[in-house]
């Protein structure tokens, strides 16, 4: 297990280095780093000082080392707009985004799993066909437009739920207050839409495959009730791929929250990055990208570990 973990950590490190290179090249080679990293308002002397401080007068490979050194110290530059360290700015906005992404994941599982289970257990029923058609729609509908429609129907027409913002927060979390929770519902559903379709499809195909396995037939031959066979023998087996994929998708959920946050004016990292791109606050963009990459790597790692906890075959291989 330890060897396995170490190997995974090493792989993650490689990916991190590769991605830092890409971001570095994006900033330093494609764009003009002086323009990207130094505020356009800075005067000549400030510019010169900043160029030396950032090491922009040195060869490219040295610049990369400086970039990495700074990044390791948590210094990813200062925002032009807020005049705050970019990293700090992003970390402040992170809880809002995490909350949204987790809310969406919860919705995806709560809605997708039962629907997928139903569609898998009764594949020829009308309900299953409707569910599958719905999941195609969930894949094709553009997130931002669905978000608008949700606002139009539930906030404007029906007036049931608030349209934008986070509402009241407690210790920085919306879901801890009733008002904040009501603000969280529509954005979570919006962000969950794609994931619900994904979970439905995964669950359905998982159920259909597992139902054909000998061990399911054997479980029935033991005289177990239908429910026990479905909810213990089948369900536990499909849970592994579903949890893995949903977990892996957390990264892309966070990435796609860019759209949802913009639609619902949700003050998270995604809204921040869009605003930053629009005003060319590039240190924030760079910091955001590095944070997201790091997040991806951590998520992949955690999912791998969870996977091994869920699946005894993987868990015990490492021990032996």
């Amino acid at each position: 297990m330890t060897v396995y973990l170490l190997r995974r950590l090493f792989q993650s490190l490689l990916v991190l280095v590769a991605m830092s290179l890409i971001v570095f090249v994006g900033v330093y080679a494609v764009g003009d780093p002086v323009e990207i990293l130094i505020s356009p308002d800075a005067d000549q002397a400030e510019r010169a000082r900043a160029i030396v401080a950032l090491g922009l007068d040195k060869p490219l490979w040295q610049q990369y080392l400086v970039f990495v050194q700074n990044a390791l110290r948590g210094d990813l530059g200062r925002s032009f707009v807020y005049n705050e360290p970019a990293l700090q700015l992003i970390l402040q906005k992170m809880p809002a985004t995490m909350e949204l992404a987790l809310g969406a994941t919860v919705f995806a599982i709560l809605v997708g799993l039962p629907l997928g289970l139903y569609a898998g257990l009764h594949p020829d029923s009308g309900g299953a066909k409707a569910i599958m058609a719905g999941s195609i729609l969930g894949f094709s509908l553009p997130t931002f437009w669905v978000g608008l429609m949700l606002i139009m129907v539930f906030a404007v027409q029906l007036g049931w739920l608030p349209s934008t913002g986070r509402g009241d927060t407690l210790w920085g979390w919306s879901f801890l207050t009733p008002n904040g929770l009501s603000h969280l519902v529509l954005p979570s559903i919006n962000l969950a839409l794609f994931k619900i379709s994904l979970v439905i499809r995964l669950t359905r195909s998982g159920v259909r495959e597992t139902m054909l396995m000998d061990y399911v037939k054997f479980a029935r031959a033991k005289g177990l009730s239908r429910n026990r066979v479905t909810y213990v023998h089948v369900f536990k087996n499909i849970l592994i791929p579903v949890v893995t994929v949903v977990g892996l998708e957390l990264g892309s959920t966070i990435a796609f929250s860019v759209v949802t946050e913009s639609v619902f004016a949700w003050p998270g990292m995604g809204k921040l990055i869009i605003d930053s791109i629009n005003v060319l606050d590039r240190p924030v963009i760079v910091a955001y990208l590095m944070i997201i990459v790091l997040m991806f790597i951590v998520i992949n790692l955690v999912v791998d570990i969870m996977y091994s906890v869920l699946d005894p075959r993987v868990r015990l291989e490492g021990q032996g």
């Binding site: 764009g31 791109i277 963009i285 991806f296």
Partner: peptide
């Protein structure tokens, strides 16, 4: 593989942020 492991929206944002 690297490209596909990265969400499309993010990659597109990154490119537009640079270009």
């Amino acid at each position: 593989d690297l490209q596909l492991s990265f969400p499309t929206i993010l990659a597109a944002l990154m490119i537009l942020a640079f270009l």
